[in-house]
Amino acid sequence: MLMEFFTWGAALSKNNPVAYGFLVMTTMAGLGVSIAVVIDLIIRLLGVNLGYYKKEFEDQLH
């Protein structure tokens, strides 16, 4: 199923390069957002504090 998608993408790169460009961009962006959300949940489940923290540079900002 997944391999069929990539084979279809390879054919698209030859037949319709513009559409392939958009396919690359949307696949990467979509996958990036999905993985970011999933890993965010995993990190929360591991009990890592992802909230606000005291930054060392704040005292120095004008």
Binding site: F6, P17, Y20, G21, L23, V24
Partner: peptide, 23 residues
């Protein structure tokens, strides 16, 4: 990604595998 994709210079499967590790 769009520009190189339009030139057919992107291996989508390779980019996906790299992205899984990179993410």
């Amino acid at each position: 990604g769009l520009s190189y994709g339009m030139k057919g210079a992107v291996e989508l499967l390779g980019a996906t595998l790299m992205l899984v590790g990179a993410a």
